[in-house]
Design a protein around this nucleic acid. Sequence first.
RNA 1: GGCGCUGUACCCAAGUGGCUUAAGGGGAAGGUCUGCAAAACCUUUAUUCGUCGGUUCGAAUCCGACCGGCGCCUCCA
Length: 469
Amino acid sequence: MLKLYNTLTKKVEEFIPIDPNEVKFYVCGPTVYDYFHIGNARSFIMADMVRRYLEYKGYKVKFVMNLTDVDDKIIKKSLEEKREAKDVSTDYINAFFEDITKLKIKKATVYPKATEHMHEMIDMIKKLVDKNYAYNIDGNVFYDVKRFSEYGKLSGKNTEELEVGARIDANEEKKDPLDFALWKKAKEGEPFWDSPWGKGRPGWHVECSAMSCKHLGETFDIHAGGNDLIFPHHENEIAQSEAANQKPFVKYWLHFGFLNINEEKMSKSLGNFFTARDVLKKYSAEAIRMFFAQAYYRGPLNFSDDLLTAAEKGLEKINNLVDKVNSEIKKNNSGIKPEFEFNSYYKKFEEAMDDDFNTSQAVAVIFDFVKDVNRVVAPLDNVDVSFYNDVKTFLTKTAENVLGIVDFNKTTTGDDKLTNDLIELLIRLRTEAKQNKNYQLSDSIRDRLKELGVILQDSKEGTTYKIGK
RNA sequence: GGCGCUGUACCCAAGUGGCUUAAGGGGAAGGUCUGCAAAACCUUUAUUCGUCGGUUCGAAUCCGACCGGCGCCUCCA
């Protein structure tokens, strides 16, 4: 039984999809005005793990992630760079797909773009205006927060206290400082679309309401995003969708904790961020995912090189077994098949993930599994290939398909045959040198190869190699 | 000021009333293997869970007070 923490009720609840045949899952995607940073990546990756686990459980998942391609920041960048907003967003959409592919994030079912849903957004705003939830002032349309009595139910804020709060910017045009823009009148030189209220563009919040409604329906199962979206973004989405459709908007709200640097939130505005693509230059997708998986998705997490390196080192332990399994399967030996309770590891893995996606616990189960496999195999000379097939199946289903921290197809040997053969030749020469007790030569071969990134590993069965980064 | 999260070993981090004499990873120490080394593998590493009280047969886990860290309340994953 899968349980998850619902921000709306502030409780851990049993997950029961509205339609038992298909889970409808929406995640707030990027505003494409820049590369996304490793903190954004945390949300994308954790949402990906949730989605993959739902699939592991046998659910069909319709996974929707929006691309915000009309926005103040995009316009600003396009003015700075003196080119079309469209070109800016197209470039960063392409970059976004490059990065998530490298991070081994599964593709969404749909990536709706704001610019391709003008009609739906205008329709929704019309509905809100008709129902008196919105008002038009000289081409700017605002949502009338006072009209929606449940405003604040997600974030636990009440409207009176919000108004007391000093930091709300009082827009001279709005009836109430809490009201937010549904349609913004176009200024000179800005991209615009025609609407019943004149030329302009939609506000950010209405985008997610309109697009999720189109692709997932008026009520759907899971809506996820970073903690900072709870207010006002998700609160506003609820206000819009529920007022327009007169139906509950989302059943389960999932929010991800921040990635911090020196105990401080990583963010574009603070300037203390690393882009995902820069981090990927130094660490593998598996290491990055491992780092995130080792912490609970809702809590804060500190980012540093040391912590990434620690995750990477831990991963090596699992990868050593992956390499061994791959080579044993290639050898296809028959022999003893050791007793091993695979089922108990599946069960423990599922218990961990069922408990509000306790990936940290799930990773611990993987480590225990690896340790126990090594222990069982250590004293045996001849292990049957069927055992390694079972090991591979377990790791594929859990570590590879759900967590994405392992890749059985990643080769640690040379990509092409010539490289392979040349290294094998050097290994043979070194072995001969060793047999002749010419250790000076054998060590020199080992050291020179290491300088080239080829690491030799001696063992009872002979010397193997792997190509480091 | 309001709302929410959080304080567990040298570091990261699960656990939230008895199944735990507190998972897992990194680091450190010892061992097996080795010509040496590396890698690999094995073993060890918190009588204690921010502090002080309370509830209970029993608490890291519940309650209260206090101390500290963070986030949201403005665009932000």
